[in-house]
Amino acid sequence: MDIVFVLFDNVTQLDFTGPVQFLSRLPGATVHVVTKDGEAVTTDCGFDILPRSSFAECPQAEILCVPGGHGVREAIADTAIVDFVRQQAKGAEYITSICTGAFILGAAGLLQGKQATCHWAYTQLLPLFGATHQPARVVRDGNLITAGGVTSGIDFALELIAAIAGEEMARTIQLALEYDPAPPFGGGSLARSSDEIVGNLRARVYDKAASEMKIAIQNII
């Protein structure tokens, strides 16, 4: 089973490294980490990721995964990236995204008429691509699976493993990687965070980021 992760500059590394750690344990899986030219891409954590190959060298994906990050603003305007995702999606058994990677799927025309999700700060932008936001951590609509922000990529990976190889396999991989979240604080979602924390975070980061993402989307539609 060929699993293709499409990377680009300024990707959020955990969008990618979370699900790839789990999906790589799927029996029979071969992971292909690809970039447009086969060169390393930057991450939002200050280090680079070296891919396995370029788009031209990549086989047809059975599972196509597109992570997010602030680099999505540039990626959706890059015809090489969007065209690659569109072409791969035609033959993929599962088309998936994590966080704002959903907007790359949207730019490729893959969200039209679909239920979908992404990071909570950007969900209001999904209708720009013809999608309806479904408030869930992982949303499946046919062979399209979209995950919310960053860490939800791990939950998405486990759901996909269960769909492909059964719940026992998913539980086995979950145990092998000791995924048993017990955060020291409540929160982590809008519903469980205080209005003060949400407001401060929006004002400091996400009001500007969402506005810039909206402009980037409007420039291509």
Rank of each mutant, 00 (worst) to 15 (best):
V198C: 13
L111K: 03
Q88V: 08
V41P: 08
V82M: 07
A107I: 01
T43H: 11
Q60D: 15
G166D: 10
A165T: 00
N143D: 12
S53E: 15
G28L: 06
L160H: 03
G187R: 01
P127E: 04
V139D: 12
P59E: 08
A176H: 02
F5N: 06
R202D: 15
G109F: 04
W120I: 09
V11S: 15
D2C: 09
E159D: 15
E196C: 04
K214R: 13
Q88S: 08
A29R: 01
P184N: 09
F129K: 11
T35Y: 01
N10C: 15
A131G: 11
Q115N: 12
A89H: 06
G199P: 10
Q115D: 11
W120P: 12
P127L: 03
R73D: 12
Q124P: 02
N219C: 08
T17Y: 07
G166T: 06
V4F: 03
I197P: 00
T146N: 04
P19R: 00
G69M: 03
I164E: 13
P184I: 06
S211F: 04
G188M: 05
A29Q: 03
A182R: 09
A77K: 13
A216C: 03
L26K: 11
G187I: 00
A191N: 14
I104M: 13
V41C: 07
P183F: 00
G187N: 02
A216H: 02
R171N: 15
F185Q: 14
A162P: 00
G106W: 02
L177H: 10
I145T: 08
L126E: 01
H133R: 02
V85P: 15
E168F: 02
V72Y: 04
L177K: 04
A92W: 05
G130Y: 02
I63L: 15
I3A: 11
L64F: 03
K114I: 00
G28P: 07
D207L: 09
D48V: 14
P59C: 07
I215Y: 03
K114Q: 08
D78L: 03
V85F: 08
D141E: 06
A209G: 12
L111M: 07
V20W: 00
L190K: 12
P67T: 08
S53T: 13
I161P: 10
V85H: 11
I63N: 06
A157H: 07
D141C: 03
F156G: 09
S53V: 09
L128T: 09
D141K: 03
H32V: 04
V33E: 10
D37S: 14
C118F: 00
A136L: 12
A102D: 08
G142I: 00
I173R: 02
M213C: 07
S54K: 03
R25Q: 14
D9T: 14
L23S: 08
T146V: 03
G46Y: 08
L7I: 09
E167F: 05
L175V: 05
G188I: 06
D15L: 02
A163P: 06
